[in-house]
Protein backbone atom coordinates (compact mmCIF):
# COMPACT_ATOMS: atom_id res chain seq x y z
CA UNK A 1 0.00 0.00 0.00
CA UNK A 2 3.01 2.34 0.42
CA UNK A 3 2.95 3.15 -3.30
CA UNK A 4 -0.63 4.39 -3.01
CA UNK A 5 0.27 7.10 -0.48
CA UNK A 6 -0.10 10.67 -1.69
CA UNK A 7 2.71 13.01 -0.67
CA UNK A 8 1.61 16.61 -0.02
CA UNK A 9 3.49 19.74 0.96
CA UNK A 10 2.68 21.09 4.39
CA UNK A 11 2.46 24.88 3.96
CA UNK A 12 3.34 25.85 7.57
CA UNK A 13 6.74 24.19 8.04
CA UNK A 14 7.46 23.08 4.47
CA UNK A 15 7.67 19.43 5.59
CA UNK A 16 6.22 16.76 3.39
CA UNK A 17 3.23 14.94 4.93
CA UNK A 18 1.73 11.63 3.85
CA UNK A 19 -2.02 11.36 3.23
CA UNK A 20 -3.67 7.99 2.68
CA UNK A 21 -5.95 7.84 -0.37
CA UNK A 22 -9.67 7.51 0.34
CA UNK A 23 -10.02 3.87 -0.53
CA UNK A 24 -11.26 0.83 1.32
CA UNK A 25 -10.48 -2.80 0.55
CA UNK A 26 -13.63 -4.67 -0.45
CA UNK A 27 -14.13 -8.39 -0.98
CA UNK A 28 -17.44 -9.85 -2.13
CA UNK A 29 -17.54 -13.64 -2.12
CA UNK A 30 -19.78 -16.69 -1.87
CA UNK A 31 -18.58 -20.09 -0.59
CA UNK A 32 -17.60 -21.11 -4.11
CA UNK A 33 -16.60 -17.88 -5.82
CA UNK A 34 -14.86 -14.55 -5.22
CA UNK A 35 -16.71 -11.84 -7.15
CA UNK A 36 -14.68 -8.77 -6.18
CA UNK A 37 -11.43 -8.35 -4.27
CA UNK A 38 -9.88 -4.90 -4.74
CA UNK A 39 -9.54 -1.41 -3.30
CA UNK A 40 -12.61 0.74 -3.93
CA UNK A 41 -14.08 4.12 -3.12
CA UNK A 42 -17.33 2.94 -1.51
CA UNK A 43 -19.97 0.24 -1.37
CA UNK A 44 -23.75 0.55 -1.43
CA UNK A 45 -26.17 -2.15 -0.30
CA UNK A 46 -29.46 -2.61 1.55
CA UNK A 47 -30.34 -3.99 4.95
CA UNK A 48 -33.50 -4.19 7.07
CA UNK A 49 -33.52 -0.42 7.64
CA UNK A 50 -32.99 0.49 3.98
CA UNK A 51 -30.21 1.42 1.54
CA UNK A 52 -26.84 2.50 2.97
CA UNK A 53 -23.32 3.38 1.83
CA UNK A 54 -20.02 2.51 3.45
CA UNK A 55 -17.13 4.88 2.87
CA UNK A 56 -13.44 4.47 3.79
CA UNK A 57 -12.56 4.50 7.51
CA UNK A 58 -16.07 3.49 8.59
CA UNK A 59 -16.65 2.36 12.18
CA UNK A 60 -16.66 -1.40 12.90
CA UNK A 61 -19.96 -2.68 11.61
CA UNK A 62 -21.76 -5.98 11.06
CA UNK A 63 -25.06 -6.12 9.21
CA UNK A 64 -27.32 -8.65 7.57
CA UNK A 65 -27.96 -7.74 3.96
CA UNK A 66 -31.37 -7.92 2.29
CA UNK A 67 -31.92 -9.03 -1.30
CA UNK A 68 -30.58 -6.10 -3.31
CA UNK A 69 -28.04 -4.92 -5.84
CA UNK A 70 -24.61 -4.25 -4.34
CA UNK A 71 -22.73 -1.43 -6.05
CA UNK A 72 -18.99 -1.10 -5.49
CA UNK A 73 -17.56 2.19 -6.76
CA UNK A 74 -13.98 2.12 -7.98
CA UNK A 75 -11.77 4.58 -9.85
CA UNK A 76 -12.25 2.38 -12.92
CA UNK A 77 -16.04 2.33 -12.71
CA UNK A 78 -18.84 0.58 -10.86
CA UNK A 79 -19.07 -3.12 -10.07
CA UNK A 80 -22.63 -4.35 -9.59
CA UNK A 81 -23.93 -7.67 -8.32
CA UNK A 82 -27.47 -8.80 -7.53
CA UNK A 83 -27.65 -10.72 -4.24
CA UNK A 84 -30.29 -12.72 -2.39
CA UNK A 85 -28.81 -11.87 1.00
CA UNK A 86 -25.66 -12.09 3.04
CA UNK A 87 -23.64 -10.55 5.81
CA UNK A 88 -21.30 -7.56 5.72
CA UNK A 89 -18.35 -7.18 8.07
CA UNK A 90 -16.57 -3.81 8.24
CA UNK A 91 -13.37 -3.57 10.24
CA UNK A 92 -10.11 -1.62 9.97
CA UNK A 93 -10.87 -0.22 6.49
CA UNK A 94 -11.66 -3.70 5.20
CA UNK A 95 -15.14 -4.69 4.04
CA UNK A 96 -16.01 -8.35 3.55
CA UNK A 97 -19.37 -9.33 2.11
CA UNK A 98 -20.27 -12.99 2.65
CA UNK A 99 -23.03 -13.86 0.23
CA UNK A 100 -25.61 -16.50 1.04
CA UNK A 101 -24.98 -20.05 -0.15
Amino acid sequence: MADDKIVTEDKKDGKKAERLPDVVHIRVSSPFKVYFDEDALSISAENETGPFDILPRHHNFITLLSACEIVVRTTQGDFRIQISGGIMHVKANQIVVFLNV
Binding site: N47, E48, N60, F61, T63, L64
Partner: peptide, 16 residues
Protein backbone atom coordinates in the same frame (compact mmCIF):
# COMPACT_ATOMS: atom_id res chain seq x y z
CA UNK B 1 -19.26 -1.79 22.66
CA UNK B 2 -16.87 -1.96 19.72
CA UNK B 3 -19.26 -2.70 16.84
CA UNK B 4 -22.48 -1.42 15.32
CA UNK B 5 -24.91 -4.32 14.66
CA UNK B 6 -27.86 -4.24 12.33
CA UNK B 7 -30.41 -5.57 13.16
CA UNK B 8 -28.85 -7.11 16.34
CA UNK B 9 -25.97 -9.31 17.47
CA UNK B 10 -28.43 -12.20 18.09
CA UNK B 11 -29.68 -12.03 14.50
CA UNK B 12 -26.10 -11.95 13.24
CA UNK B 13 -25.21 -15.04 15.33
CA UNK B 14 -28.30 -16.88 14.06
CA UNK B 15 -27.40 -15.97 10.48
CA UNK B 16 -23.79 -17.12 10.93
Amino acid sequence: LTYIFEPSSFDVIAHL
